[in-house]
């Protein structure tokens, strides 16, 4: 009621909120993240254009992970068809398709619901393969430990500049299909330069799932993150010696990509370790 004169007329009240419009999604994402952390599962949100090679990366990762004794799991989102999930199953990754219909992205709630249908607790690394799209998925936190953006060499050197929101959200860019470079007019240095202009901590690994090039650098990156999520002794994987990755460090300080400002360098020490860009000068 109007309190000035007591006339009984309705009153206009300004309410200051200053709330994120995605606050609801962020809450659901926090919930997912707690689940993943509590189970010691490294969850990754894999994003990229349609045809960038997200599924092919996972198929090749399955081969590399088998050597490590890691168990993988995945949910795979598409507007229609469960083709990707079937490809992943065939590659030995227990998977579930999330068919989003008209929705161009995954949100935390969709991921949460899909978790009821996959044995995600039993895996070491869980991939959330997002809808092929360089725009919308970037702004939805799903509860992942890190965002991986798959960019293929055929997409053009300036893609990071055209889709800065996506690349700013990335913790790692997997530059795929590098086996095609000899057939293309693409200058990889320009891709790395573009990434450095949109990603404050640029990290790029060049891979070819087809030839296997760079896959060991990618697996080393996964091992580094996994060590932070599933610290030594906490959750020994079944039937194999516990592997702490190529650095052989059993300590459990956080190597996670989020918010580490301390300076230290990780050498991956392998022939395919293409880790270019200013991140080297960290």
């Amino acid at each position: 009621m109007c309190t000035t004169c007591g006339c009984g007329d309705p009153e206009l009240v300004p309410v200051e909120l200053h709330e994120k419009i995605l606050a609801g999604n962020d809450r659901a994402a926090r919930h997912n993240r707690e689940h993943f952390l509590e189970a010691g599962v490294l969850a990754l949100n894999l994003m990229g254009s349609p045809g960038a090679g997200k599924t092919a990366v996972l198929e090749a990762t399955a081969r590399a992970a088998a050597a490590k004794g890691w168990r993988l799991g995945a949910v795979s989102a598409d507007l229609a068809t469960d083709n990707d999930a079937r490809r992943l199953e065939k590659a030995g990754i227990p998977s579930k398709a999330i068919t989003t219909g008209q929705a161009c992205h995954l949100d935390a709630e969709l991921v949460h619901r899909s978790l009821h249908d996959v044995p995600w607790r039993d895996v070491d690394v869980f991939f959330i393969e997002n809808v092929g799209n360089l725009v919308c998925p970037a702004i939805y936190d799903l509860g992942q430990a890190a965002n991986v953006v798959v960019l293929s060499v055929t997409e053009g050197e300036d893609k990071p500049l055209k889709y800065p929101v996506m690349f700013k959200a990335a913790d790692l860019v997997l530059l795929t299909k590098v086996d095609l470079v000899p057939h293309l007019d693409v200058d990889l240095a320009r891709v790395h330069d573009a990434v450095a202009c949109v990603m404050p901590r640029p990290r790029v690994i060049e891979v070819s799932p087809r030839t296997g090039a760079g896959m060991d650098a990618w697996v080393a990156w996964l091992a580094e993150l996994r060590a932070a999520v599933a610290p030594a002794g906490r959750r020994p994987a079944a039937g194999h010696a516990h592997d702490h990755g190529p650095h052989g460090h059993g300590h459990a300080h956080d190597h996670g990509p989020h918010g580490h400002d301390h300076t230290h360098e990780h050498e991956h020490g392998d022939a395919h370790g293409h880790d270019h860009g200013p991140a080297r000068k960290r």
């Binding site: 309705p10 300004p14 909120l17 404050p200 000068k281």
Partner: peptide, 23 residues
């Protein structure tokens, strides 16, 4: 020689305020 930081609001999508009619 450190990574840049995004200044406040650059990636915000915020409901700042609403004006309500109350009886």
């Amino acid at each position: 020689d450190v990574p840049a930081r995004l200044d406040d609001g650059g990636d915000a999508l915020t409901l700042d305020a609403i004006e309500l009619e109350v009886p």
